[in-house]
Every structure is written in structure tokens, then in C-alpha cells.
Write a protein that binds this DNA or RNA. Structure first.
Lengths: 167, 167
DNA sequence: CTTGGAAAGTCAACAAGGCTGACATAAAAT
DNA sequence: ATTTTATGTCAGCCTTGTTGACTTTCCAAG
């Protein structure tokens, strides 16, 4: 058929509706795969995706405040609080009163919390690693580039700030 | 230091936990962007994502049966039925008794249904198109390759079958 | 022709996880 | 002293997923 490359060797974009539609469906099916493994683990332990997200970002930015977590996750405080409360009750998350500002709560994973986080991210990383291996290194660059370009500008800034935080 | 290529010229993947974690977070934030525009449109009209998914795949594989739709969407028939019922009541979807097998229902979009589908997919395609443009043609190949590799095998087969159906 | 089973639909009940609104408290900021 | 901010909590609502039980329709095999 057509490999999307012009005679000169430079790849062209055939952004037909069909091409785009396939991209959309690929996103849909891939996201299912992306969440499938953690979902199984969460289910076993009586948690949901909301818990996963909280645990992930608390692990990622240890000591983060509730407000910061709220703006990363993009949910209401009531929604987050419900999840956070169960995690604290279950001893997976510790909430410490802020040092400088005592209104704030700094959130940390306990050892048990770290253990869950590791189980979840191990599973998800394995999936990601396998996909990266299959697709090849060039593909990984492209994958990341398109994903980043697809984010809302505000979230994109947040994403890049997160990237810099660690590593 | 190291450009990620082995002496032989073949690129290597440095799949550090950090690299993979960034990929995971990129998926998370990108999916939010991916659904943001349709979500707004759906909200205006009093529908949710479940309606979007149904409308999309009915448009995609017009005349599909309920059972087929169920296995694509991966939800229970009760869940799908609730969504389908409102779409039929609102005159967006038509359910015709099967010709060969009268137990089956073949699903079609009405004109109003097509209109909603177009509004939703126009918005989503625009986002996708902009991301593709920004990332460049090479990136698009990689994006698609990684997404496909990330799917569950069963869904991947389904995805590829869908691809062939149309186009 | 009867009957078993598949396809579809429906009812009821429940849970997770979003949402809004209202309100309480403590502490910082003005 | 007052206002604003950060957090937490209660109550109630919605969407969308689940299970289980049951009915209707109807194809197909005995």
C-alpha cells in the first residue's frame, strides 16, 4: 500500500480521518492494557484506580501537600479525601502536620504503602518495558513525543515539572 | 557519555525505572487530554464517556450486534444496555431486529446519532492531529507501535480486526 | 414438534469514584 | 482583629461499573 514516505525518503503525514481514527482507537485499547495489571492487584486488595493514582503521586513526590496532590490529580478534595482516608486508616499513607505551615499536611508512604506502590508499578513497568522492547527505541521517542503533545498545556507543564523534580 | 547506541550501531533501550515511570505518567496525563474535549461536548448534552464509546463503535462498525459491541467494550450487557437504552430513547441509535437471526439486534446511528458522533470525533481528531503535527511523522509511527504493543493480546487482535474492517 | 440453549432485554441491588454545597477548624496573612 | 487559606467532613447526587435472577424470543438439534 503506502508506508507514508515520500520518494525523497522523508516521511509524510497522511492525516486522513481513518488514520486519526485508528490512533484514537489505539489509545482506547492501549489504555485498557495499561491499567489492566494494576487493576488486578488493586482488586485483590480492595482498592481502586483512585488509590493507585494517590499512591503513585505520593511516592513520586514524597511529602507533597494535599493541595498539590489535588491539582495533579484533578479531582475534588472530597473525592481525594475519601481515598486518602482509607489509605491512612489502612496504614499505607502517613499524614504529617507541616513544619513551616501547620495548616498543611505532608503525605508520605509507610513501608506498607511503599510495598503496594512497588507491586503496582512493577506490574505497570513490566508492561511498559515489554511494549518498549517490542516497538524499539526509535518508537519510544515518538511515543513520548506524541503523548506529551496531546496533553492539555497546563497538565503538560505539570508533567514536565514532575519530570525535573526527580531524576 | 552514551548516546544509547551499542557499538554495532543498534540502538539500546535504557529502561531505567525512571524512564519507565515517565512513560507511565505521560500515559496518564495524555489520556486526560485525549478525553477532555469529548467530555466537554458530552457533558453539554447530558451524556458520559460510556455513551461516547457506544456511539463510536456503532458508527465504526455500523449494524453491529449487541454481543459484538459488548466484547469490544468489555463491559456487562446490563451496563451497556443502560447506555444503549438512553441512546435509543433519545433517537440517536436505532436497533433493528436481525434479518437472519431475529434474536440479534443490529445497531445503527440515526442522523442525530451521526451528528453527535461527528462532533465528538471531530474534537478528538483535532487534538490528535495537532499532537501528530507537533511530534512529527516519525513520532507517529512510534506512538502507534508502542500503543499496539501495550494492548492485551486479545484486544490487540480485536483492534487489528477493526482496522481491517474499514479502510 | 418439542426442547435445549443462545441472544437479548429487564429488574433490583450494590459499589467505586466522580460531583456540589455547606460547614468546621486551625493557622497564616493582612 | 479580620480575612483568607488548607484541610477535613457530612450529606446527597450522578455515572458507570458489577452480580444475580428472571423472561422472552427463536434457532437448531433431537
Amino acid at each position: 500500500m503506502n508506508d507514508g514516505r515520500a520518494p525523497g525518503g522523508q516521511a509524510l503525514l497522511f492525516l486522513t480521518d481513518e488514520q486519526l481514527r485508528k490512533g484514537i482507537e489505539a489509545m482506547f485499547f492501549a489504555y485498557r492494557g495499561f491499567t489492566a495489571d494494576p487493576d488486578r492487584i488493586l482488586d485483590e486488595r480492595g482498592y481502586g484506580r483512585a488509590h493507585h493514582r494517590a499512591v503513585h503521586f505520593i511516592s513520586r513526590t514524597s511529602g507533597t501537600t494535599v493541595n498539590n496532590l489535588l491539582s495533579i490529580l484533578g479531582v475534588t478534595k472530597q473525592s481525594l479525601n475519601r481515598v486518602l482516608r482509607t489509605l491512612i486508616e489502612d496504614g499505607l499513607v502517613e499524614s504529617r502536620v507541616g513544619k513551616r505551615d501547620k495548616r498543611e499536611r505532608n503525605l508520605f508512604l509507610t513501608d506498607a504503602g511503599e510495598e503496594l506502590e512497588r507491586a503496582l508499578s512493577d506490574a505497570q513497568r513490566e508492561r511498559m518495558k515489554a511494549a518498549y522492547r517490542e516497538a524499539g527505541p526509535e518508537a519510544v521517542q515518538g511515543f513520548r513525543a506524541v503523548l506529551e503533545a496531546m496533553m492539555d498545556p497546563e497538565l503538560r507543564r505539570r508533567f514536565n515539572r514532575l519530570k525535573d523534580d526527580v531524576s
